[in-house]
Every structure is written in structure tokens, then in C-alpha cells.
Design a protein around this nucleic acid. Structure first.
Length: 224
DNA sequence: ACCCAGGGTCATA
DNA sequence: TATGACCATGGG
């Protein structure tokens, strides 16, 4: 792995210059809605997850109490457009049970990163990426999100092999960037946007702001 | 008829 | 620890 500070800072600058501020994750003013969105968008397009969020909002289910109390079958029907709806319904209710049993949403949002991240990871259905997305976009704590696009982009740049652990890649970003949640939020949003426009499984090299991207030999051997 | 998307869990070797 | 199977909808 050759993922140094200068390279990552340069990557961030290039993406920011190319795409501008993303101001990601609509509905960021409602932390609980962001948490629900983070769970529903797992391995799913945002359009599908957003449909499910809208259905929940329309029926008045965008509170921990409401999701906790609703009949599981009804919750499953509401979030059906998001896919994996049985697993995600169970995750949502598991999360809301835990929130309500540990002092409520306000209490949750006021805790520090060192206690919040392990707590999130202990909930079934919430892994590292979802936990970090919740921490950054809902709670406002700087815990860098590593997703498939991040791995694919770094892999195609030749900076990682691909078998590095989540923590290993995350620590590179943590060491390179200022410990500012706004930077972390923006950087991950830029990576996803770049991934969607140029770094799909089938690359789209026309107009790619990272001109070196499509030429790397590591490109053939990637797992993603 | 494919492939893919802002993952995570569990069983197997 | 490392693959593979499975979860499931909707768009290209």
C-alpha cells in the first residue's frame, strides 16, 4: 500500500476542483432521517432508498418511537422499494430499540466518537461503513467513510492492492486530512460522485478529472 | 437477459 | 482469514 498524505490531499483537491461542493445527504437537518437513510441505502441506489424514506415520512414513521412500535410486517412493506427489506426492517427496529433503551436520540447524539462507534457496530445490520456514515452525516463526528468506490478508486490509482482492511484504509485518510467533520463529509461525497460518474466497474474515461486513472496496470486485477 | 447499486451476516474450509 | 451464498428492489 502506497497511500501517502500528499497523494490523498491532492486527490481531494482535484475532486473538489472538478465537481465543487457536494452538500451531500439531503435532510441532514433531521439526524434520525439520515440514520434511516444510511441503513436503507446499503447496497442500493439512493433513488430506491429515498422512495422508502418518503413512504416512512408520509406515514409518520420517521421517529425512533414509531419505528420501534410498528408491526414488523408493516415496516417491511413500507421500506420495500429499498430492497433487502426484511433485513433492513429488523436493523431499523434493532437500532430504535437500542436508542430508546439507552436514553433516546438526544442522548445518542451527544456521546463521543470513542463510545458511539463501538456501540453502533454492536447492532446487528450495522457494519463499519454504515456506522461511519451515521457518525459523519447524522451525528457530526469525524469518522471517515470507506466504501466500495473508495477502494476501487485507490485501487485503480495503484495506491492499494485491494485486500487492505477497512481500518487500514481509513487510517490513511484520517492521517492525511484535517480532523474536521465537514472535510470528511465532503471528501466521501466527492469520492462517491466521482465513482458514479467515472469509476464504475466499466470505467468511463471521457471527461475524467483524474486523467491518469484509466492507464494503470493494476486495473485488470482489481476485485471490485 | 443480463449487470449493477452510497453493505452486512453467516456458513464453510 | 478468506471466499461464497444470501438477502431483494428497480434502473440501464
Amino acid at each position: 500500500m502506497n497511500c501517502d498524505r500528499d497523494g490523498l490531499c491532492h486527490l481531494y483537491d482535484r475532486l473538489l476542483q472538478a465537481y465543487g461542493q457536494q452538500d451531500w445527504w439531503p435532510g441532514r437537518e433531521n439526524p434520525f432521517e439520515v440514520i434511516v437513510g444510511a441503513i436503507l441505502t446499503q447496497r442500493t441506489t439512493w433513488a430506491n432508498a429515498a422512495r422508502a424514506v418518503e413512504l416512512l415520512r408520509h406515514e409518520g414513521f420517521l421517529t425512533p418511537q414509531a419505528i420501534r412500535q410498528v408491526d414488523p410486517a408493516q415496516l417491511e412493506e413500507l421500506i420495500r422499494p429499498a430492497g433487502f427489506y426484511r433485513a433492513k426492517a429488523a436493523t431499523l427496529q434493532g437500532f430504535c430499540d437500542w436508542i430508546e433503551d439507552t436514553g433516546g436520540l438526544a442522548q445518542f447524539l451527544s456521546q463521543p466518537l470513542a463510545t458511539l462507534r463501538p456501540a453502533l457496530l454492536s447492532i446487528r445490520g450495522i457494519g463499519e461503513e454504515t456506522a461511519d456514515a451515521i457518525l459523519v452525516y447524522a451525528v457530526g463526528l469525524p469518522s471517515f467513510v470507506i466504501d466500495a468506490y473508495t477502494r476501487r478508486i485507490l485501487g485503480r490509482l495503484g495506491w492499494i492492492k485491494g485486500d487492505e482492511s477497512y481500518a487500514e484504509i481509513q487510517s490513511c485518510f484520517t492521517a492525511a486530512l484535517p480532523q474536521d467533520v465537514h472535510i470528511f463529509a465532503e471528501a466521501h461525497a466527492l469520492i462517491v460522485h466521482h465513482g458514479k460518474t467515472h469509476c464504475r466497474p466499466q470505467p468511463i474515461c471521457e471527461g475524467c478529472p483524474l486523467s491518469c486513472f484509466c492507464n494503470f496496470s493494476s486495473y485488470r486485477k482489481e476485485k471490485l
